[in-house]
Design a protein around this nucleic acid. Sequence first.
DNA 1: CGACAGGGAGTTTTT
DNA 2: CTCCCTGTCG
Length: 826
Amino acid sequence: MHVYFHYRVNLFLSRAFVNHLRKKMYGSLNPQQYEAVTADIHKPLQIIAGPGTGKTKVLTSRVAYLLIEHKIPPSNIIVTTFTKKAANEMVERLQTLFVKENLDPSKYLKGLLIGTFHSICVKLLRRYGTLIGLSSKFKIADEQDSNTILNKVLTSLSDDVIRLKVHPSSVSIDIYQKDAKETDKLDGYDLKKVKSQISKLKSLTTTPQIYSATSARSFDLAVIYSLYQESLRKHNLIDFDDCLLYTYLLLSETKLKGVVLLKELKHVLVDEFQDTNKIQMELLYLLGRCTEDQKFEDNVTVVGDSDQSIYMFRNAVASNFENMITHYQNCQQITLKENYRSTSNILNFSEQIMTQQKDRKQKSLRSQKSHLNIPIVYVRTQNTFKEADHIASEIAKLGLMPSLLTNYNDIAILLRSSFQSRVIEQSLVTNRIPYEVVHGRAFWELKEIRVAMDYLRAVVNDSDKLAILRTLNFPPRGVGNKTLQKLEELIDKSNCSVIETLEMAIDDKKNGFLNVKSENGVSQYIDILKECGKLLDSGSLDCETSLEACFDQIVKLANLKEIKKTLETSKRTHDSEIALKAVEENLNEFKRQLVEYKPIIDQIITTETDDTSLTPRDVLSNFLDSIDLYETSNNENKKDSKKGRVTISTIHGAKGLEWPVVFIPGCTDGVIPSKWTLEDNGPNSSTNLDEDRRCFYVALTRAKSLLYLSSYKERSTPWSGEESNEVSCFLKPTLKLFQEQLVTSISKMSRNSWKDLYEAMGKEYKSVSKVLTESNRSRDHIVSTKDFLQSKQFKSPLLNKSTSAPTYVPDRSNHKRRRLGVRRRI
DNA sequence: CGACAGGGAGTTTTT
DNA sequence: CTCCCTGTCG
């Protein structure tokens, strides 16, 4: 009643205002977008949004529509995004939207539940996990933790289990090493394979109990799965997939009643729907049923594009689109067809590639830039060095064109695999082109980062057994493996915290539990932790400063900067200095992430946890969780230079992004599509090939104006000589069809194309002929790029001698500077 | 029992 | 080239 009244009054008072809003906020939407944003909110909705069709805009507007026009409280809405970055971006967009309309964003957004599926699930589990017997203090197992645990399970399997391998009614699943040796500790199991099978089971909502009760199962896998899960529980850990699995259990086992937070849930929105897996699909169905108000049942909106499904390897099922249609009888579907991103050449080219896939619905995207005719640049080079130099030289040329390119941020180089980056980075360095490698997990897997993480974990939680055992003797303090094992046994028996147990071991001199060397090592270690812990709790410093102080102290006391030296005592090349610097830079980057860490923009998610300042300890603990959820924000280092940097990223990392200029090197069989896909002759081979093709499609459709493709004939690998490679089988047929629209370099483009390029880039056309003549004078750009750039005749706005080296280069530790292909003249 | 040196194996994509 | 594992020395 009350609510109803309130609603009417508001509606009455502000009709004019709402109309005004409608015009302003939705005026920029095209008819299909508008339809999607304002579609019946009491029905399930699918929005099929091909590349560049304004997906984020539509999703954001729909959230705003729910908040403003339907007056749904933000805390009754859940939005799942693919990454934390995407979540932050949405919040930002919403904020600006509200600010523009003179509305207080915090009022409209406070309590909005937005984030990745995983982080939302963890939030629910922290609050309601006890309902399904989960400790509220659980931690998330990182990759290392779950590897250690699984490894232990596999090394201590009893003979009974091993005998199950050959049990006649056991379903055979490949979880074994290729050529197991007699002496193998893991009894012939392949840790990675086992892990991925367990992960697969979890993604299918299969618990160990369910799996063990299934008749068609692998007998030994069932046991291993149970043991693994048991061990996680003993450590008070949940792994990555468990975040979803436990939430699924929480919501499905009638316990739902206890989940107060979701009783008034009124809408669930899912971004990047094509990348959801089975359990996420099920979670969506469950979430749709949480509400106690029937009117709001099944109010879900999903957005995605099955052509961009590139996470099948992570158990994503693009057929969730069809699944959803069958699940709801009244599901509405709206397709967005206007493409605002790419020129029609790029769009047609990528569509042509996709027609190779069988059983695919043809897309009829319309380019809003169809009047522009800019060719696609394609070259086939002799080897990867030449390819890299070609890229550098083209970037340099772009930079020299009068007022065409004002910022390197407009350029991206997209790779299928991260190993491709090495050669390219070298060429960019030589040519003084600033770049930035967007690192996915790679950064967090660096030794120094992992160790720093473990120390932080040990400081923040004196019972983090795994982290403590890993750091206790790293760097070496005289506590060897034998002692570590003994200590672990002691810890497992003890009721005290891990650190207390260690202290007891030191004091227990009568039994001579530790030898002198070990004793010293352990007490030294405990001192380090105490010392650093003090800095966290001092209270006199503000949060950021104490976190920074704590981190610095860890680096200092644990001597983390010397890590590389510890690891390779023998090698003393002059490269060790470079390695040292790299370690230092990486640690600094990590520190920056720590100090600048913010949960999700401005903590719109403060709900009822009193935001009366979290202690440094809490913040640190949240930070560590967010890393385990792969939630770290990619650094946005825009401030350090007005000229920006070229982005180097994997295609997977480039999802949802766009650039005016995109390079896709390695359009070569073995890279795109990858070697593994090509060599696979199994039953899934064509499905896998399709996924690689979609990956290529995603890469192509990131480009707005200028698309560069290249393939190479040979790749020399340091330890296996030369490999020769065909042009990508995706590209071959299409190249012929598009012959007319291809050039080998921008210097071969026609005058009209140049004009179009300038227009596409939003710049006023300036004659480029002078630059081109000069550049053509030297016969071979590849050889002369560098000299050409340094010639005084043309001052590039983008290049100068002080261009700094890249901020961060992933583990470049010992790599010797190779002589670049540039030098091999004649 | 711990530190160290030398051999063998291995390279997708990541929430 | 670099990580991990194993065998030997102090």
